[in-house]
């Protein structure tokens, strides 16, 4: 656990924060040894998490903040995105793959994060808003990730504030 690293960033509720969060996490992912495809998936997931906080959580209100945290543990990269909204239940999120939702112009962000990360969960955050917690297993030293497709229904460990 000596290699554990932690990054905390407070972002403004604005569109630019989405790009900023993506770029920061991409740098961490690249430094952690993830390949191009996994960096894309991580970057996209961070992007979607911050879009969710910006639009649905904070309702695009500039006085609210978005809290991004990245933990590199010995075996995975864990990303937390916390907003200052009212929170939500994952069970209430419509399935974007349902026939009646295919032509919906929104509602795919959660699905993409779930698809691209190994673990994904939403818990009540310390602000009262939603805290998205998602993780991806680090590549092994030989460049391969184990359990790459083992997505199952695992939940990431909630962040201890």
């Amino acid at each position: 656990m000596a290699d554990q690293k932690h990054l905390d960033v407070t972002l403004d509720t604005q569109v630019e924060s989405v790009n900023l969060a993506e770029e920061m996490c991409l740098r961490v992912a690249e430094a952690a040894g993830f390949d191009e495809d996994d960096c894309y998936r991580i970057g996209m997931s961070v992007r979607e998490g911050v879009i969710n906080a910006f639009h649905y959580g904070n309702q695009e209100r500039p006085e609210k903040k978005i809290y991004l945290a990245v933990d590199l543990t010995s075996d995975k990269m864990v990303i937390h995105v916390l907003d200052e909204g009212k929170g939500f239940n994952l069970g209430d999120v419509p399935n974007p793959l349902a026939e009646e939702n295919l032509l919906s112009t929104s509602g795919r962000g959660i699905f993409l994060m779930r698809s691209f990360m190994d673990e994904f969960n939403v818990v009540p955050g310390r602000t009262g808003g939603a805290e998205i917690i998602m993780s991806k297993k680090l590549p092994s030293p030989d460049g391969h990730r184990t359990n790459n497709n083992d997505k199952g229904d695992h939940n990431a460990t909630p962040h201890q504030a």
């Binding site: 996209m44 992007r47 979607e48 879009i51 032509l103 919906s104 112009t105 929104s106 795919r108 962000g109 993409l112």
Partner: peptide
Amino acid sequence: IDSSGIGELVSAYT
């Protein structure tokens, strides 16, 4: 393309 871009493509289609 992110989810916003996907939504925009769907919106254009409709």
